[in-house]
């Protein structure tokens, strides 16, 4: 049954997912080629100095892409479900309702990760051509909060769409905006290292909110 739900989400989203994957990889490749240009046009030691002492990282323009992808995927996945309250179809299937929605969220998060991971790989492999292993650590510490922001944005979008009451939708949007802003502060490579576990835990706990929204929908708790 889990596979059937993943199949449904795949059929629903496959075209959009391919577009996102292509866009992410294309953007990553553009940044990679810019790096290549910079590396060739300048002395290698200058490039390293810019990295080590000025915090220059060639993938910084990618910062908001995971967030945008997360919101887009949440919209594309759940808008069809809540139009005409189509989510009733899922809630009527012979499996636990929480499990049903949780599987939808798992499918969405998986697709989001798969759409973004190739770009991350381009950065890692591309960076490895010109930078030492210390740079990979920087990549991890800078990129991870952005990816977590993307996952958080996806879960927030799902929660907002599944929630039936407009006032609560606005509340969730404000909460998400306020929290996700803290994931996207300017960083000088490892700046987020100490708060990364807390950010990850928060995003994990955020899964509860769309489940809560769908539960409220089920109970008819509109007020």
């Amino acid at each position: 049954m889990s596979r059937a739900l993943f199949y449904k989400e795949w059929i629903k989203l496959r075209l959009w997912w391919v577009l996102m994957l292509a866009a992410g990889v294309a953007f990553a490749l553009v940044l990679f080629f810019k790096l290549r240009y910079v590396a060739n046009a300048n002395e290698a030691v200058t490039v390293w100095n810019a990295w080590i002492f000025k915090g220059w990282l060639f993938f910084r323009p990618f910062q908001y892409v995971p967030l945008v992808f997360g919101v887009a995927l949440g919209l594309l996945q759940f808008l069809p479900e809540v139009q005409a309250r189509r989510v009733r179809l899922v809630l009527h299937l012979p499996l636990g309702e929480t499990r049903a929605i949780a599987l939808h969220l798992a499918a969405g998060l998986l697709l989001l990760a798969l759409a973004l991971l190739p770009a991350a790989l381009v950065f890692s492999l591309g960076g490895a051509l010109w930078f030492p292993r210390e740079w990979q650590g920087n990549l991890f510490h800078v990129l991870t909060p952005w990816l977590l922001a993307g996952a958080g944005a996806y879960l927030a979008a799902a929660a907002v769409l599944l929630e039936t009451n407009w006032r609560h939708r606005v509340f969730y949007l404000l909460l998400a905006a306020g929290a996700l802003r803290l994931f996207l502060l300017e960083t000088f490579y490892d700046t987020c290292a100490r708060i990364l576990p807390a950010l990850a835990l928060w995003v994990l706990a955020l899964v509860l909110v769309p489940l809560f929204s769908s539960h409220r929908f089920r109970k008819g708790l509109v007020r």
């Binding site: 929480t98 909460l175 928060w202 509860l208 909110v209 489940l211 809560f212 539960h215 409220r216």
Partner: peptide
């Protein structure tokens, strides 16, 4: 689940404020 979700929302809202 719903109580855990509500407490999470309460703590997040309070923390952000």
């Amino acid at each position: 689940m719903r109580h855990a979700a509500r407490i999470f929302l309460l703590l997040t809202g309070a923390a952000l404020l």
